[in-house]
Simulated assay, not measured.
Amino acid sequence: MTIAVIADIVASRSAQDRDAVQRAIESATVTVEEVRPRATQRWWPTVADEFQAVYETLEDALVATLYLQLALPEGVACRFGLGVGEIGPVESSLTDAIQDGPGWWAARNAIEHAEELEQGKLPGTRSWLVVHDTEPPERRARAAVVNAYLLLRDQVVADMSPRARRAMYDTWRGRQQKEIAADEGITQAAVSQAINKPLVRALRVGAKDLERAFR
């Protein structure tokens, strides 16, 4: 299975420092990939405010997009379109980096739908999955389950405080609670409380289960 992922920057046109936003996102993609190197094609900026990556499994794409959301600094956000389908190179005399195919078409449809939901009654929406019609029926049927998870996941992240996001992300990176507490200027107990609230804990447990799926 191939998972093509497109990310774009939320409200990029209104960013006060567009260069700083770009640097923050690029840094986050590098760090997430260093902690859990799963992308078959690492994140790369394409044009305007978009980035792309490719994963071999849906579980890997779900984990990566979760922790990318958590890794971004306050005030910076991305939305993600996940597309399941074949992708391949396009012959070009100018570059060897062109790809196309149903996976990318599905990812484009997915990110557009995520934006529609975000601008409607689900402002916390940041992600959506589309499985292209050329994929087997069992894969297409799985999309509804994954999107139900994504809607809930993204809303939990949206409702987390910036400090809780940082604490969950740093915990995933393997940092000790006392280190996180020192950086945040709070007690270790406060860090523990932030990452063990029921919804946040459920998010952490779910992410661990996804990570274990294809070890």
Rank of each mutant, 00 (worst) to 15 (best):
1 M>Q: 12
3 I>E: 00
3 I>C: 03
7 A>P: 05
10 V>Y: 02
11 A>T: 03
13 R>V: 02
17 D>C: 05
17 D>K: 01
19 D>N: 15
19 D>L: 15
20 A>F: 14
22 Q>E: 07
23 R>G: 09
24 A>T: 06
36 R>N: 05
40 T>D: 06
44 W>R: 15
46 T>P: 00
48 A>Q: 10
48 A>E: 07
52 Q>P: 09
56 E>F: 13
59 E>N: 05
59 E>Y: 03
60 D>L: 00
68 L>V: 03
69 Q>M: 07
71 A>M: 07
72 L>G: 00
73 P>D: 10
75 G>Q: 12
76 V>T: 12
77 A>S: 11
79 R>W: 00
86 E>W: 08
87 I>F: 10
88 G>W: 10
90 V>K: 11
94 L>I: 00
97 A>L: 14
97 A>N: 14
98 I>H: 10
99 Q>R: 10
99 Q>H: 11
101 G>P: 08
104 W>E: 02
106 A>C: 05
106 A>T: 09
114 A>R: 04
118 E>I: 10
120 G>N: 03
122 L>H: 14
126 R>F: 02
127 S>V: 06
129 L>H: 12
130 V>S: 03
130 V>K: 03
131 V>R: 02
132 H>K: 06
134 T>Y: 09
135 E>S: 07
137 P>F: 14
138 E>S: 14
138 E>F: 11
139 R>Q: 10
140 R>T: 02
140 R>E: 05
141 A>E: 14
143 A>N: 01
146 V>D: 01
149 Y>H: 15
150 L>A: 01
151 L>P: 09
152 L>C: 12
155 Q>H: 15
157 V>H: 02
157 V>K: 04
157 V>W: 05
160 M>V: 05
162 P>I: 07
163 R>I: 01
165 R>C: 08
165 R>M: 07
166 R>C: 11
166 R>N: 01
168 M>L: 14
173 R>Q: 14
175 R>N: 13
176 Q>L: 15
177 Q>Y: 10
178 K>F: 06
179 E>D: 13
182 A>F: 00
183 D>Q: 13
189 A>V: 13
190 A>R: 00
197 K>M: 13
197 K>S: 11
200 V>K: 03
202 A>D: 09
203 L>I: 06
203 L>T: 01
209 D>T: 15
211 E>C: 04
213 A>I: 02
215 R>T: 14
